[in-house]
Design a protein around this nucleic acid. Structure first.
Lengths: 219, 219
DNA sequence: CAGGAAAAATGCGCGCACGCAAGTTTGCGT
DNA sequence: ACGCAAACTTGCGTGCGCGCATTTTTCCTG
């Protein structure tokens, strides 16, 4: 369940992936996303362009993944960490809010960039779908997997809710420009409390979580 | 609410879109999806390749859309058509089941093709996301839109559930081959009752629909 | 510690998606 | 009926995603 010994192969793979995503983000921030060719990213990471494509299916994906990182896994872990007697709906909601709270805290320019460019926004939103599999796994465990698709459906629904919350959150930012390397301003971000939006989007699902939980207890 | 007068421009556009998607499907069935270049589709539809790309963002999308057609709108319409006093969850479930019941009834070969080829399956599944917007619209109406994202979340959740049901339904079909123009067999399809899977996937969401409905009644 | 299997990196080639800047068609006001 | 503006089509050019075959690296087992 932990980390046996990672093995060298695995470590190198991770290193390459990290190198690629960081190079992608750095270059995108420095010179603007449209001025970064795949070749540049690959070179900066010290691999061939072809190899780059073995790790990421698109430039947007690479850039965004530097911000998204392994948020999916962190959410799942956070849910699993909650004591077993708290309402499942609350566990999920809190875990999600917690993980998105310090979104892009490390580099405001990255967030600004993603918000501004349409293609990146798109990729960023699509990335939320990634929480489904790990979340489904923990939910299946908590609900005592019956073979029914309940866990997956709830996980996917939560993911969809998160996506909707994010969409609404960054809707205000629609203009162009501001791509120079010196955006510098963190106070330009949409604001409007991401946390509130997340809770609002997830709350309609609470009854479904409650019902599933009830079923699993009586079973 | 109906059709004012469609206008000539609009009619031509629709005609082109239909021509493209039907050409795409026909060619794909005839000679196998990998033997169809964009150029062929465009030519068969009597437009330039560039124009083809103004209508569809990928070959898969074009092919699949011939089967998907306007299922999204039909589902939304079906929901809207149910009397206002039936449980919302039931209305949605029945509407979905009803629309997917005669899936690819017209051309079994098309279904067979989509099931077989991975890229097409992917595109087919992605297409389910398309039900969200129209469904969200009807739900918003039924629930008396409060500005809260409830309707959208429920619609997206339902779409996700449908996707999961479909995934499970066509999992059994994983092999390759059988791409010749004479598949001819309709009894090869996965079977295992799509309807049951759809209901099973949607049922965990019922409590959420009930709760939303209750809220809207008391408000 | 050798040797061979499995996995990953790489090079090459093809078709494709899409931005851009014309050219062409449709719609509408006068 | 005319002509202008907006919508749509088209050709061209660029970088990209990915399948395939080959080479290089990692891993395991005797």
């Amino acid at each position: 369940m932990t980390t046996p010994p990672p093995g060298l192969r695995e470590r190198k793979k991770r290193a390459t992936r990290v190198a690629l995503r960081e190079a992608a983000l750095r270059l995108a921030v420095e010179r603007g996303p449209d001025q970064v060719r795949v070749e540049d990213i690959a070179e900066a990471a010290g691999v061939s362009p072809r190899t780059y494509n073995n790790y990421f299916a698109s430039r947007e994906q690479a850039i965004v993944s530097a911000v998204t990182a392994d948020r999916e896994a962190r959410i799942a872990a956070a849910v699993a960490a909650r004591p077993a007697d708290v309402r499942l709906a609350d566990a999920v909601t809190d875990a999600v809010v917690e993980q998105y709270a310090h979104a892009g805290e490390h580099d405001p320019r990255a967030l600004l960039l993603i918000i501004t460019r349409t293609a990146l926004r798109e990729a960023f939103l699509d990335a939320t779908a990634g929480i489904e599999p790990p979340l489904a796994a923990v939910l299946a465990e908590r609900l005592g997997d019956t073979g029914a698709p309940t866990a997956r459906v709830l996980a996917a629904s939560a993911a969809a809710a998160v996506r909707i919350a994010l969409e609404g959150w960054l809707r205000p930012a629609g203009s162009a420009e501001a791509a120079g390397s010196l955006g510098a301003a963190g106070f330009v971000v949409p604001a409007g409390s991401l946390a509130e939006r997340l809770r609002a989007a997830l709350s309609p699902l609470a009854p479904a979580f409650d019902a599933a939980e009830r079923l699993s207890r009586t079973a």
